[in-house]
């Protein structure tokens, strides 16, 4: 069984970011970059499938050479193989076309992706890959069980849990609650360094033309100073907070 995890390198959500010249991307040179947290869950889930059923787990990313850092992290966590796709892809559709092609080349049985990337939060790639492959897919799973060529996934819906059966091949995307990703192990880090990363170069003939372009990005306005109310008893404080929310912030 081949399990492919789609991994994206994103700016650390805990760190401050700058915009690149032209404001169409963040400045990736100065940013501290991490594996997208939902993709870490995808890696963890793939490793659990491997530990239970035996499988070869692939981490696949699309990006510049720097994105190989994300693959090394995946390898250090225990992934068996890694591939970097380079392609003239920019929007979700072209990225998905490139990744779908990589999935075909690896002959995957299961593809696991994060529900969305912490940077652009579009949440399209997993679904688009499934659509392009014409595979069943389950989004935002909180529980996943594979047995033979079938599987069961759970997802949270308004007021309950939805339980879905599917047959392989399948694409699933991860949601909080699915698992807690393991740490990369230190022996894993050393081994990851020696591992060769497969290069998959794709051209415009595969990825086609983008249908979306980023015109410009803006950083959110800096958060204003917090205010601390002092010398009020709880009842007065509550009254004052309501007054501020109503009259000053105009939120209620």
């Amino acid at each position: 069984m081949q399990v492919v995890v789609l991994v994206k390198q994103v700016a650390d959500t805990a760190a401050r970011i700058k915009l690149a010249d032209g404001k169409q991307d963040i400045d990736r040179q100065s940013a501290s970059l991490i594996v997208n947290p939902y993709d870490e869950m995808a890696i963890e889930e793939a490793l659990r499938i491997k530990e239970k059923h035996g499988a070869t787990v692939w981490a696949v990313t699309l990006g510049e050479a720097k994105a190989e850092e994300a693959l090394r992290t995946a390898l250090a966590m225990g992934v068996d193989e890694a591939a970097r796709v380079s392609a003239p892809a920019s929007d979700a559709l072209t990225v998905a076309r490139a990744l779908a092609q990589a999935v075909r080349e690896i002959s995957a049985d299961i593809v696991i992706a994060g529900r969305s990337a912490a940077d652009d939060e579009q949440g399209q790639v997993g679904t688009l890959v499934a659509t392009l492959l014409d595979w069943p897919h389950v989004t935002e799973v909180t529980k996943l069980e594979i047995s033979g060529s079938e599987g069961v996934a759970e997802r949270e819906v308004e007021g309950g849990v939805e339980i879905l059966d599917f047959s392989l091949p399948v694409v699933v995307t991860t949601q909080e609650g699915l698992n807690t990703p393991r740490y990369a192990s230190l022996p894993g880090i050393m081994k990851a360094k020696r591992k060769e990363i497969r290069q998959i170069a794709l051209g415009e003939d595969v990825v086609g033309q983008p249908v979306l372009a980023v015109r410009s990005l803006e950083l959110p306005p800096p958060r204003g100073q917090g205010r601390i109310l002092t010398d009020l008893d709880p009842a007065q404080a509550a009254k004052e907070i309501v007054r501020i929310l109503h009259e000053e912030a105009k939120l209620i």
Binding site: R72, A184, L186, I189, M190, A192
Partner: peptide, 10 residues
């Protein structure tokens, strides 16, 4: 080196 930073971050 990259793996030094990975050790550090981990």
């Amino acid at each position: 080196a990259e793996e030094d930073r990975m050790v550090q971050e981990t």
